[in-house]
Write a protein that binds this DNA or RNA. Structure first.
Lengths: 328, 328
DNA sequence: ACCCGTAACCTAATCGATTAGGTTCGAGGA
DNA sequence: TCCTCGAACCTAATCGATTAGGTTACGGGT
């Protein structure tokens, strides 16, 4: 049985009102009494019930995090989640992980939260519009798909700049037929990459080379699919691999095709990870700074909770530096 | 302003008591009235407040997840988290991510939960004993470190069997000087691996070869540290790489030492990941089934919530099959 | 006609914290 | 002496859902 405010008040011989005021540092209690109540609360190891408080304040102190339910090769989501959780904790808020409502498109059974954070909202995920249509603050990391609704806050990465930085670098290192490999076209991020790349190709007078593959197709399948793409004569000679885990796969595949990564073919990853730094050779990558990204989302949401819904989403930008390494 | 039970009751012309009983399917209301109340609640889009309910029931409906705060290369934690969240959702519970209290060792500021799940409790993490000493149900995935306290439930992987399976396989494939590489000695899992390996060596009459490296040391550092270890004459000729992301690094390193992974040196990873399947060559690995592991932890905790603390931790075993691939 | 049991509702208390709105008491001013 | 004012407390309502414990009213039995 946890200690309640009433227990503390009784022990101190005051009313719960006085105890509450004393513990919350509000005016209306003598210093003497406040000191005594605090001491007693400390001794009794009193912890205010977040439930009682939530009921009275009409705030639960919880924020819901909604992320895609896809298999994750790397730690991107873990890092983002930790960034969010830590930032929220600094504001005395807690983070709840929402189950996917990809198919149902219903927020039934979701716990009561004060706001939502959407990470990488996918097209076709019916949970995304369901969340956006509630009358609660929502911060979205990445622009939600068209028609899903508009968030209160929007945290973005400069995908266009990052993509150009990669391909400009490929160009500077002598690539003549750079290409892009994606594993999905349902995240805004993937779509951004493709659009930026195609625009860049137009500006450079190059023919775009885009390959769409599956994150789950076998090595031999991938090899046969891409062998021609990477043909030594006239094939792709530099590639940005967008999406979770695909860059390392491509590196291995290129090796088995007889290429030397970072020399005969350049390679970069759209998502950095410790493995990019520690792979042999080290892989050039865009650092999306997931932990920091998470904290920015959380901090923005905290600002928006308790305010009116802004006419336009409040925007924040998180830089995504290109980490240049040997591979590309 | 969300719709409350009182709103529904008023609209239906009944008391909140009747409305509550009707909506919760308890006896004491006529079918006619129940139907009408349900219909009205539906039309008004009534959602019971989890806060009000929690206050009355003395249950928050939330479970706290505590995991190490280390950088994560792979998706292990993400998968575990999802497994937990999904399983809890099936029981109408929600998952809150707890901030690390590694240094403070205090649960202050933690939200009110009905129980805890500890994943990979590390030695030296002061948050672990702090959680275990609360009077709440705790399920631990992996045995907590000595002296940290005892959980109510314990979910284990057959680390000894998995480790032996790896080394038996190495042996069968002709390895004569198998070794073990770890990146930490603070998880029970790492310690299990080392112990099993040393015992196995004793049984086989082999000299143990254990290397401890850092997950963060540079490639060149790692290369110089391990060059001798992997010396073609008399060096390690098969290695189990325990820990997040290290197997892929070792594979690259072995290549740059002139080895052929899966031939001149065998390699296996203690943790499977999609990347192990898709690496070139494919890497033999122990599949810890993180998603399933998470659901087992969650289901066990649900069983324990509301019961008395058992005299001994309730144990569950989650199999960890060896996925044999080309590398080892 | 009268009593009893029970289905179907309702009233009010409860969970824990917060807060609007009193009440008390003593100091200071006229 | 009497009045005013404010500091320091207290009482009680409130948030939303649940539930123990009434209160009707009606049907069946004698």
């Amino acid at each position: 049985m946890p200690v309640t405010l009433a227990d503390v008040a009784r022990a101190a011989g005051v009313s719960t009102a006085t105890a509450s005021v004393a513990l919350n540092g509000k005016a209306g209690v003598s210093d003497e009494v406040r000191r005594r109540i605090r001491e007693i609360a400390e001794r009794m190891d009193y912890r205010p019930s977040s439930v009682g408080r939530a009921l009275r304040r009409a705030r639960t102190g919880m924020v819901g995090l909604y992320m895609p339910n896809t298999a994750s090769t790397f730690g991107y989501y873990t890092e983002t989640t930790r960034g969010v959780a830590e930032a929220l904790h600094r504001h005395d808020l807690s983070l709840v992980i929402l189950p996917s409502s990809h198919e149902t498109g219903s927020t039934e059974g979701f716990p009561d939260v004060d706001g939502y954070i959407l990470i990488e909202p996918h097209a076709h995920d019916r949970g995304v519009p369901a969340i956006l249509h509630q009358a609660l603050p929502v911060v979205s990391g990445d622009t939600p798909p068209r028609g899903a609704g508009s968030p209160w806050g929007l945290v973005e990465s400069p995908n266009d700049a990052s993509t150009r930085a990669v391909f400009d670098r490929f160009r500077a290192r002598g690539a003549r037929r750079p290409g892009l490999i994606l594993i999905e076209r349902i995240s805004t991020w993937s779509l951004d990459l493709e659009r930026s790349y195609r625009t860049w190709c137009g500006e450079q007078g190059l023919q775009p080379r885009v390959a769409l593959t599956s994150a789950r197709s076998s090595n031999s399948k991938l090899l046969s699919d891409l062998a021609e793409w990477f043909d030594p004569d006239g094939g792709t000679d530099a590639v940005l691999a967008g999406g979770d885990g695909i860059a390392v796969r491509i590196a291995g595949l290129l090796r088995s095709l007889g290429h030397v990564v970072g020399d005969s073919v350049l390679l970069a990853s759209g998502v950095d990870s410790p493995l990019m730094e520690f792979h042999t050779p080290r892989i050039t990558a865009v650092d999306l700074q997931p932990r920091h990204f998470g904290t920015v989302c959380a901090d923005l949401l905290v600002e928006l909770i308790g305010t009116e819904r802004p006419a336009e989403p409040v925007r924040r930008l998180v830089s995504a530096p290109l980490i240049a390494r040997e591979s590309g």
